[in-house]
């Protein structure tokens, strides 16, 4: 559970990078604007999570699924996110599947399969394209 409110903050450096990537190179961002976006992102995640949980409960499911989230985004007027997230999800699923298969063939007992690190992710991506 959350002990301190700071535990809900997203790292500033990552937020700064994401913002930078979505603006023209010559643009700059005020500190206050960056802090507001970071706060908004945390609240967005909470908002989508609780809405998806409500949706899952309405269908008598205890656990939320990817489908619940995508449907919720549509209901919350963020349907523009859905196509690209659906594609990301496909790639993620393929990656997890490939991982499992290669693990099974190697009889590797490591348990960290799902939380792939960036380099293997990139490698998998290259292979699937």
């Amino acid at each position: 559970m959350v002990e301190r409110i700071e535990d809900l903050n997203l790292p500033n450096s990552v937020i700064a990078r994401l913002i930078k990537e979505s603006l023209p190179e010559s643009a700059s961002v005020s500190k206050e604007a960056r802090a507001a976006i970071a706060r908004a992102a945390s609240v967005f995640a909470i908002f989508v999570t609780s809405s998806s949980t409500a949706l899952a409960h309405k269908q008598n499911h205890k656990t939320i699924t990817a489908k619940d989230i995508l449907q919720t985004l549509g209901e919350l007027d963020f349907e523009s996110f859905v196509p690209s997230l659906t594609q990301d999800l496909e790639i993620y699923r393929k990656m997890v599947k490939d991982k499992k298969e290669s693990k099974a063939s190697k009889k590797d007992t490591s348990t960290t399969a799902e939380n792939a690190n960036a380099s293997t992710t990139a490698a998998t991506e290259d292979a699937t394209e």
């Binding site: 994401l18 979505s22 976006i37 992102a41 995640a45 989508v48 963020f78 996110f81 690209s84 997230l85």
Partner: peptide, 9 residues
């Protein structure tokens, strides 16, 4: 992913 997209958006 969705939160990242939201930040960009």
């Amino acid at each position: 992913k969705c939160t990242e997209l939201f930040v960009r958006h």
